[in-house]
Protein backbone atom coordinates (compact mmCIF):
# COMPACT_ATOMS: atom_id res chain seq x y z
CA UNK A 1 0.00 0.00 0.00
CA UNK A 2 1.35 3.48 -0.85
CA UNK A 3 2.62 5.52 2.08
CA UNK A 4 1.49 9.04 2.98
CA UNK A 5 4.62 10.46 1.33
CA UNK A 6 3.78 8.57 -1.85
CA UNK A 7 0.23 9.94 -1.78
CA UNK A 8 1.56 13.52 -1.49
CA UNK A 9 3.94 12.79 -4.37
CA UNK A 10 1.11 11.38 -6.52
CA UNK A 11 -1.13 14.39 -5.80
CA UNK A 12 1.60 16.63 -7.26
CA UNK A 13 0.44 15.42 -10.67
CA UNK A 14 -3.02 16.95 -10.13
CA UNK A 15 -2.88 20.41 -11.67
CA UNK A 16 -5.02 23.51 -11.22
CA UNK A 17 -7.66 23.33 -13.98
CA UNK A 18 -7.20 27.02 -14.86
CA UNK A 19 -3.41 27.30 -14.35
CA UNK A 20 -2.06 23.96 -15.62
CA UNK A 21 1.56 24.74 -14.65
CA UNK A 22 0.85 24.54 -10.90
CA UNK A 23 -0.10 21.44 -8.90
CA UNK A 24 -2.77 21.53 -6.21
CA UNK A 25 -0.04 20.58 -3.70
CA UNK A 26 2.15 23.56 -4.67
CA UNK A 27 -0.90 25.84 -4.73
CA UNK A 28 -1.39 24.95 -1.06
CA UNK A 29 -5.03 23.89 -1.29
CA UNK A 30 -4.35 20.38 -0.01
CA UNK A 31 -3.86 20.91 3.70
CA UNK A 32 -3.71 17.39 5.15
CA UNK A 33 -3.36 13.77 4.10
CA UNK A 34 -3.77 10.82 6.44
CA UNK A 35 -4.46 7.10 6.28
CA UNK A 36 -6.85 5.44 8.71
CA UNK A 37 -6.58 1.91 10.14
CA UNK A 38 -8.72 0.53 7.31
CA UNK A 39 -6.21 1.96 4.81
CA UNK A 40 -8.60 4.64 3.53
CA UNK A 41 -6.95 7.98 2.68
CA UNK A 42 -8.42 11.17 4.13
CA UNK A 43 -7.56 14.33 2.22
CA UNK A 44 -8.47 17.81 3.45
CA UNK A 45 -8.63 20.65 0.97
CA UNK A 46 -9.42 24.33 1.38
CA UNK A 47 -10.66 26.72 -1.33
CA UNK A 48 -8.50 29.56 -2.67
CA UNK A 49 -11.58 31.79 -2.83
CA UNK A 50 -14.86 30.86 -1.12
CA UNK A 51 -16.80 31.13 -4.39
CA UNK A 52 -14.19 29.47 -6.61
CA UNK A 53 -16.20 27.42 -9.14
CA UNK A 54 -13.31 25.00 -9.77
CA UNK A 55 -13.37 23.45 -6.30
CA UNK A 56 -15.77 20.56 -7.03
CA UNK A 57 -13.71 19.69 -10.09
CA UNK A 58 -10.49 19.76 -8.06
CA UNK A 59 -11.96 17.41 -5.44
CA UNK A 60 -13.03 15.03 -8.20
CA UNK A 61 -9.53 15.10 -9.73
CA UNK A 62 -8.02 14.24 -6.34
CA UNK A 63 -10.43 11.30 -5.90
CA UNK A 64 -9.56 9.99 -9.36
CA UNK A 65 -5.82 10.25 -8.71
CA UNK A 66 -6.24 8.35 -5.43
CA UNK A 67 -8.23 5.68 -7.27
CA UNK A 68 -5.41 5.30 -9.82
CA UNK A 69 -3.00 4.91 -6.94
CA UNK A 70 -5.00 1.97 -5.60
CA UNK A 71 -7.54 3.64 -3.32
CA UNK A 72 -10.98 3.06 -4.85
CA UNK A 73 -12.41 4.48 -1.62
CA UNK A 74 -11.30 7.84 -0.25
CA UNK A 75 -12.57 10.68 1.90
CA UNK A 76 -11.88 14.07 0.29
CA UNK A 77 -13.43 17.10 1.93
CA UNK A 78 -13.31 20.88 1.81
CA UNK A 79 -12.82 22.74 5.07
CA UNK A 80 -12.07 26.28 6.23
CA UNK A 81 -10.30 25.00 9.34
CA UNK A 82 -6.83 25.73 8.00
CA UNK A 83 -7.80 28.49 5.60
CA UNK A 84 -5.84 29.17 2.44
CA UNK A 85 -3.69 32.21 1.82
CA UNK A 86 -1.02 32.89 -0.78
CA UNK A 87 1.80 32.28 1.73
CA UNK A 88 0.75 28.61 1.47
CA UNK A 89 1.96 28.49 -2.15
CA UNK A 90 5.35 26.72 -2.28
CA UNK A 91 8.49 28.23 -3.90
CA UNK A 92 7.98 25.74 -6.73
CA UNK A 93 4.38 26.97 -6.99
CA UNK A 94 5.45 30.63 -7.28
CA UNK A 95 7.79 29.67 -10.15
CA UNK A 96 4.96 27.74 -11.82
CA UNK A 97 2.69 30.80 -11.70
CA UNK A 98 5.45 32.83 -13.36
CA UNK A 99 5.76 30.20 -16.10
CA UNK A 100 2.08 30.71 -16.82
CA UNK A 101 2.71 34.46 -17.28
CA UNK A 102 1.17 35.46 -13.96
CA UNK A 103 3.00 37.75 -11.55
CA UNK A 104 3.32 35.60 -8.40
CA UNK A 105 1.93 37.03 -5.14
CA UNK A 106 4.53 38.57 -2.80
CA UNK A 107 5.21 36.82 0.52
CA UNK A 108 4.03 38.88 3.48
CA UNK A 109 4.13 38.80 7.24
CA UNK A 110 1.35 39.93 9.54
CA UNK A 111 -1.37 42.02 7.90
CA UNK A 112 -1.39 42.23 4.11
CA UNK A 113 -1.59 45.79 2.75
CA UNK A 114 -3.10 45.83 -0.74
CA UNK A 115 -0.95 48.82 -1.72
CA UNK A 116 1.65 46.16 -2.67
CA UNK A 117 -0.42 45.60 -5.82
CA UNK A 118 0.54 49.04 -7.14
CA UNK A 119 4.06 48.09 -8.22
CA UNK A 120 3.73 44.38 -8.91
CA UNK A 121 6.87 43.25 -10.78
CA UNK A 122 6.18 42.55 -14.47
CA UNK A 123 6.40 38.79 -15.20
CA UNK A 124 7.85 39.55 -18.67
CA UNK A 125 10.63 42.11 -18.03
CA UNK A 126 10.84 42.22 -14.21
CA UNK A 127 10.27 45.98 -14.00
CA UNK A 128 8.56 47.45 -10.94
CA UNK A 129 7.41 50.42 -13.01
CA UNK A 130 3.90 49.00 -13.34
CA UNK A 131 0.35 50.23 -12.74
CA UNK A 132 -2.54 48.36 -11.15
CA UNK A 133 -5.52 48.55 -13.51
CA UNK A 134 -7.97 46.59 -11.39
CA UNK A 135 -7.79 44.31 -8.36
CA UNK A 136 -10.29 42.07 -10.22
CA UNK A 137 -9.51 40.00 -13.30
CA UNK A 138 -10.75 37.12 -15.45
CA UNK A 139 -10.89 34.75 -12.46
CA UNK A 140 -11.41 35.49 -8.76
CA UNK A 141 -7.71 34.97 -7.99
CA UNK A 142 -6.26 37.37 -10.61
CA UNK A 143 -5.68 41.12 -10.87
CA UNK A 144 -5.02 43.28 -13.96
CA UNK A 145 -1.79 45.29 -14.40
CA UNK A 146 0.13 47.24 -17.03
CA UNK A 147 3.89 47.41 -17.38
CA UNK A 148 5.07 50.94 -18.22
CA UNK A 149 8.53 49.58 -19.12
CA UNK A 150 7.77 46.86 -21.69
CA UNK A 151 4.30 48.29 -22.39
CA UNK A 152 2.52 45.05 -21.89
CA UNK A 153 -0.68 44.25 -20.03
CA UNK A 154 -0.27 41.37 -17.58
CA UNK A 155 -2.17 39.54 -14.86
CA UNK A 156 -1.14 38.95 -11.28
CA UNK A 157 -2.08 36.19 -8.86
CA UNK A 158 -3.64 38.22 -6.03
CA UNK A 159 -1.99 38.10 -2.60
CA UNK A 160 -4.57 37.03 0.01
Amino acid sequence: MPTIDEIWEALKSVKDPEIPTISLVDLGVITAVSLDDAGIPHVRMTPTFVGCPAMDYMQQQVRERLAQLGFPQSDVQMTFQDEWNTNKITEEGLRALGQHGLAPPPRYEGVLELEVLNNTPCPYCGSHNTTLHSPFGPTLCRSLHYCNNCRQAFEGFKPV
Binding site: F49, V50, G51, C52, S134, F136, G137, L140
Partner: peptide, 19 residues
Protein backbone atom coordinates in the same frame (compact mmCIF):
# COMPACT_ATOMS: atom_id res chain seq x y z
CA UNK B 1 -12.57 46.92 -15.60
CA UNK B 2 -15.63 47.96 -13.59
CA UNK B 3 -17.79 45.43 -15.38
CA UNK B 4 -15.29 42.74 -14.34
CA UNK B 5 -14.96 44.14 -10.81
CA UNK B 6 -18.69 44.15 -10.05
CA UNK B 7 -19.06 40.69 -11.61
CA UNK B 8 -16.13 39.29 -9.57
CA UNK B 9 -17.42 40.83 -6.36
CA UNK B 10 -20.82 39.31 -7.12
CA UNK B 11 -19.22 35.90 -7.54
CA UNK B 12 -17.30 36.25 -4.26
CA UNK B 13 -20.45 37.23 -2.36
CA UNK B 14 -22.47 34.42 -3.89
CA UNK B 15 -19.76 32.09 -2.56
CA UNK B 16 -20.04 33.70 0.88
CA UNK B 17 -23.83 33.23 0.90
CA UNK B 18 -23.47 29.59 -0.11
CA UNK B 19 -20.84 28.89 2.56
Amino acid sequence: EEDIAFSSIAQDKLGHAQA
